[in-house]
Amino acid sequence: MSAATTALPGPEELATLLDLAERVARAAGELLATQRPADLGVQSTKSSATDVVTAMDTASEALLLRLLRAERPDDGVLGEEGGASGGTSGVTWVVDPLDGTVNYFYGLPTYAVSVAAVVGDGPPGERPDPRTWTALVGCVHDPVSGRTWTASRGGGARLDGAPLRGPAEVPLDRALVGTGFGYTPQRRAAQARVVADVLPRVRDLRRAGVASLDLCALATGWLDAYYERGLQPWDHAAGALVAAEAGAVVRGLAPGSAPSEEFCLAAAPALVAELGDVLVALDPLAEEPAP
């Protein structure tokens, strides 16, 4: 099914997809919470030596893929740890088996499992592009607290079944803003430059290290705004839908653009415009020279 050529799923199919997303996210969360070895070690690194992958990342993704394929064998899958496959249905599951790996590695109780189903605008079997895909359903599960955020396209967002009203409109100087940082020295230097200018303009900044939970915190009203450069599709697929269905504007750096690896910005409409103007002026996509 292609979003450009075929009607989007109706309410019953969306409910079925969301039920599956929640069930598999909870199953992976239970695995992460109960099977974490005491001597958890780094299995490999990704973008830099500080960007770790653990054995539990890959175990969680393997479980997600097995459960999804058991019920939806014709769907595609895009996973963080290399679990990618094309499908023939037009639906692709975008999964982050362990969002917040560094927190998990250190034993910090802030991490999540993120599962979303999307349709793209290209031929079935092609990897969907977050700039053009349509997110159908999303689930972000926090295994430590047990909280579960869910959303379906046009159906609103919920936390443990209770509807979410989204972030409040506040002026920039009273906004609690979430953000995150990349892993290469050049990217971090550029982000530090932006943070140094943003921090005096806002109430305060928060950095949890889990993009999916940041977007859900925004949807719940625990943050007023969120921005980050460098998110991968699995980092924001479910959380962005939760935030948008709760009433937030979720966009790229330029007004009207879609969130992508380049940039993700989310807040209530007036605040997203105000913070967006500040960020654009700071040129947050500029990369600092290598030391």
Rank of each mutant, 00 (worst) to 15 (best):
Y106M: 09
A168Q: 15
R165H: 12
Y183I: 02
E126P: 00
P97T: 04
P143I: 02
T179Y: 05
G107I: 04
R165V: 04
E169H: 08
T150K: 11
L176D: 04
W133P: 10
T110K: 15
G100I: 00
S114T: 05
R174G: 12
V144K: 07
S152G: 15
S152K: 00
A135F: 02
G161T: 10
G178L: 07
V113D: 02
S114R: 02
R127D: 06
A168V: 11
R174C: 09
V137A: 06
P185I: 01
V102P: 00
F181H: 12
E169Y: 01
P109N: 06
V115T: 07
P109A: 07
T179P: 02
W149N: 13
A175L: 06
V118A: 11
R127V: 06
G146L: 10
P123W: 00
D121H: 05
N103W: 05
P109C: 05
G161M: 13
L98Q: 02
C139Q: 14
T134I: 11
P171E: 09
L172D: 03
V102N: 03
C139R: 08
D129K: 02
D142G: 14
Y111W: 13
R158I: 01
C139T: 15
N103S: 12
D173C: 03
A168E: 15
L136V: 12
R158G: 02
L172K: 04
R131W: 02
D173V: 02
Y183L: 12
F105C: 08
T179W: 05
V113I: 08
P123G: 00
Y111Q: 07
T179M: 12
S152T: 15
A151N: 13
A168Y: 06
T179C: 14
G156K: 06
G155W: 11
